[in-house]
Design a protein around this nucleic acid. Sequence first.
DNA 1: CGAATGGTTCGACGGTTGTCGAACTATTGC
DNA 2: GCAATAGTTCGACAACCGTCGAACCATTCG
Lengths: 101, 101
Amino acid sequence: MTEFPSADMAQVELVDVLRALADPVRLQIVGMLADGKPYPKGDCTMGLDLTKSTASYHFRTLRESGLTRTIVHGRTHDIQLRRDELDEKFPGLIEAVLREK
Amino acid sequence: MTEFPSADMAQVELVDVLRALADPVRLQIVGMLADGKPYPKGDCTMGLDLTKSTASYHFRTLRESGLTRTIVHGRTHDIQLRRDELDEKFPGLIEAVLREK
DNA sequence: CGAATGGTTCGACGGTTGTCGAACTATTGC
DNA sequence: GCAATAGTTCGACAACCGTCGAACCATTCG
């Protein structure tokens, strides 16, 4: 079984989180994950006109930056905003970014 | 006299602000401007190992993104974080970004 | 005026980013 | 086992980014 290791939050850098957020597609995806619950990746890209490979690239970017975690569920993957950990490390940041919607 | 027009805050996009913040040099500069007071550009890049042209590039990026305004003072330029306007448009964002220091 | 100071602009450059299609992996269900 | 489904990985590509030096512009000051 393939693994999708989450980034170690202790060494996540603000500038990298900001870079991950600084893209229209990823910002949109993060917006869909606002409530902190896990969603199938397929659902997250509905309405966004992306190829599978491009979507996969953005999911990887989000995960590696520390913004999301991936939960493998059979052949579908759920993705979840790491809300609690992010709020602890960067208080107010996610809330401020999500307010815009 | 050369002009340095500030971006129209009404049409500043969150994603562009995030992009401007998503660079170590610019994040550092913004950190120095935290109190919202104007500072000479020269002071902002002290300690950062940058050429004049690179510094100028980052200042332009910050200004065009809407993060800063430039005030020409003789042959020196003061730069100022547009704190109030940013707080109104993106509540909590700047505070969250600056907390990290 | 002429020299020094503080910045900008331009062109070039290498590295990174976002996108794609094609091939591949893994899991489900018939 | 086999086909379908959900997603990843790889290589290629164009566009963009951050950096630099050189030339330039504007202002102060002797």
